[in-house]
Amino acid sequence: MASGTCVHWPRTLAARGTAPLDPSHLRFRRTDPRGGVLHCVVLDCSGSMAHGEPLALAKGVLLRLLERAYQTRAEVALVCFAAGHAEVRLAPSRARRWNDDWVRPITGGGGTPLALGLARADQLLARQARQRPGQQRWLWLLTDGRSTESPPRPAWADHVVVVDVERNPVPLGRCRHLADGWGTEYRSAEAAIADPRLP
């Protein structure tokens, strides 16, 4: 089976330095389609998510992603962040059949340590890259964007998707702003549930 290429983000960001990202900065790495795929979901469990619909909507997206990962025989991981903490709730492993009984106990509260959550996920992805260099690594950020932090794009993710679950009457639009700043994909929660489009 032929190998492909994808962006090598650590080398690309090193080439970019402090300049705006330009096509000339892009660095690529070979990927082996037999190396598999890891979908790392980073779930915002902060207080703003826990009040009202956002966290429930994010759990719906999570369940849909896990279902599709199972169907495509991918691996999954879950990092949750809130109230000054970020923890790996599910270490990288082959996706299994999941149900709401597993997702329902996830609760929220406290502040939104977005940078901490992304840094924890990037550490996980870096470790996976060392162990399985041919694996494609996707990062899915599920958040309402109620954070004033502007962390850098996770360097060890080959693909990043920001899933917007904001449900405020006057949206702040920070999820789209974050995705645009990273040069990554933005999806509404409804679009992510309707068509996760996993590789």
Results as ranks from 00 to 15, higher is better:
128 Q>V: 13
152 P>F: 06
137 R>T: 07
153 R>K: 09
139 L>M: 15
162 V>A: 02
143 T>K: 03
144 D>Y: 01
161 V>P: 03
145 G>Q: 03
145 G>K: 09
157 A>I: 05
147 S>W: 09
139 L>S: 02
138 W>H: 15
139 L>Q: 08
125 L>Y: 03
125 L>M: 11
126 A>G: 09
141 L>Q: 01
161 V>I: 03
137 R>Q: 07
160 V>A: 00
126 A>Y: 03
158 D>M: 12
132 R>L: 13
124 L>A: 00
160 V>I: 08
160 V>T: 09
158 D>P: 15
161 V>N: 03
146 R>H: 15
140 W>D: 07
140 W>Y: 05
133 P>D: 13
143 T>W: 04
138 W>I: 08
125 L>H: 06
134 G>F: 02
141 L>V: 05
125 L>F: 08
147 S>E: 10
147 S>D: 08
157 A>M: 10
154 P>R: 06
139 L>H: 09
142 L>I: 03
160 V>E: 05
155 A>V: 04
141 L>C: 01
148 T>G: 13
129 A>H: 13
127 R>F: 00
130 R>V: 07
141 L>M: 01
161 V>Q: 04
135 Q>L: 10
138 W>Y: 15
143 T>H: 04
129 A>L: 04
162 V>R: 00
161 V>K: 01
144 D>C: 04
125 L>V: 01
132 R>E: 14
144 D>S: 00
159 H>P: 14
134 G>Q: 02
149 E>G: 12
130 R>I: 08
152 P>T: 09
147 S>A: 14
141 L>H: 01
